[in-house]
Amino acid sequence: MEVNTNSTDKLKKYFQINSEKFEETLLSEAINVRDKIDEILRIGNIDLVNNAHKLIGYIIEGLDQELLAFAKQEGIAWATHSIPLSFKLEWIHAIRRTLWDLIKNFDELTEKNIKEEFFRLEKQINTRVDVFLNAFFINYSTYKDTLITKQKELVENLSVPIIPINPSICILPLIGSMDSFRVEIIEEKVLSEIGKLRIDTLIMDLSGIADMEEDVIFGLMKIIDSISLMGCKVVITGFRKDLVKNITKLGIKFSPQTHTLGTLQQALHTYLLPGFAYSSLSSK
């Protein structure tokens, strides 16, 4: 049940008149946040004080749709800029306390005492603050999950940069550390791209990989065999000394369909040179 319109209008007007008092009390309540207001404005273009006034207006006037839309906007903004949630919690709870502090003064000053409507007012205001917080966190979490998923996909794509050279030849330059997780990503991405792009020859350059653990080496060999099974020629370039030693020590031998060259430049020269016969690789 809503507080009558007359009381709502009076309360709204009271807050407008006492906006400076509201800000002063709010900043005294939000001890940790007040020193971060300028930083949050700079990082996320989020005006905490102005938004507090906006939130109070939605709550007092019972503008529930606007309240939910505002919570969504705030949730996405805080998630986008990774602003600590502890600040948001402290700020909202400070707004709640400040709101009730001014309502107490309003109750003492108003011509018509609103004590008979207090419980209805309490339920409305606290419920709306909780609705805002709930919608804020739902939208924060949802958007944050979306960002994490997109970042993960970006990392996966960057970790397997398949570069087309012509319609049938692609390069896969591998750089940085290799672990089992990355090997799984490479396997999934490479086999998928071979089928989609109909790659005839994949040049896998390992010059950016210094060394690998045994399980990673076996995983990479599995990928190379899988590529060959899909009818794609595999050319490996850029083996470093330590990696060659480990592969030799493990007794791993490449299949006849897999060829090696010293450098990526040699592979590009070989495969992009007109009229060069693929079979001649076996004699190199």
Rank of each mutant, 00 (worst) to 15 (best):
Y140S: 07
Y140V: 09
S141P: 00
S141G: 06
S141Q: 13
T142L: 12
T142G: 00
Y143D: 01
Y143S: 00
Y143M: 01
Y143H: 13
Y143N: 06
K144H: 09
D145V: 06
T146C: 02
L147F: 02
L147H: 01
L147T: 00
I148W: 00
I148P: 01
T149K: 14
T149Y: 08
T149F: 08
T149A: 14
K150G: 00
Q151T: 07
E153D: 10
L154H: 03
L154G: 05
L154N: 08
V155K: 06
N157M: 14
L158A: 02
L158K: 01
S159Y: 02
V160Y: 04
V160G: 07
V160F: 07
V160W: 05
P161K: 00
P161A: 02
P161G: 03
P161R: 01
P161E: 03
I162Y: 02
I163S: 08
I163Q: 05
I163A: 07
I163F: 07
P164G: 10
P164C: 12
I165L: 15
I165W: 10
P167N: 14
P167A: 12
S168R: 04
S168P: 00
I169Y: 02
I169K: 02
C170F: 14
I171S: 03
I171Y: 03
L172F: 12
L172G: 03
L172M: 13
P173M: 08
L174E: 04
L174I: 15
I175T: 10
G176R: 09
S177H: 08
S177C: 10
M178T: 13
M178E: 06
D179R: 11
S180Q: 12
S180D: 04
F181H: 07
R182S: 10
R182A: 11
R182T: 08
R182D: 11
E184S: 14
E184G: 08
E184K: 14
I185K: 14
I185N: 15
I186H: 09
I186A: 11
E187H: 14
E188Q: 15
V190Q: 01
V190D: 05
L191R: 06
S192N: 14
S192R: 14
S192L: 11
S192H: 13
E193W: 05
E193Q: 15
E193K: 15
I194W: 04
G195E: 06
G195I: 06
G195A: 09
K196G: 00
K196D: 03
L197E: 13
L197Y: 13
R198G: 05
I199C: 02
D200I: 00
D200P: 00
T201Y: 06
L202M: 09
L202K: 05
L202D: 04
L202P: 01
L202C: 04
M204N: 03
M204E: 03
M204H: 01
D205F: 04
D205P: 00
L206V: 08
L206E: 06
S207W: 05
S207R: 07
G208I: 11
G208A: 08
I209H: 05
I209Y: 04
D211F: 14
M212C: 13
M212E: 09
M212T: 06
M212W: 09
E214S: 12
D215S: 15
D215Q: 15
V216S: 06
I217C: 07
I217L: 11
F218S: 12
G219S: 10
G219I: 09
L220H: 02
L220N: 04
L220D: 04
M221V: 13
M221A: 12
M221Q: 14
M221I: 13
K222A: 12
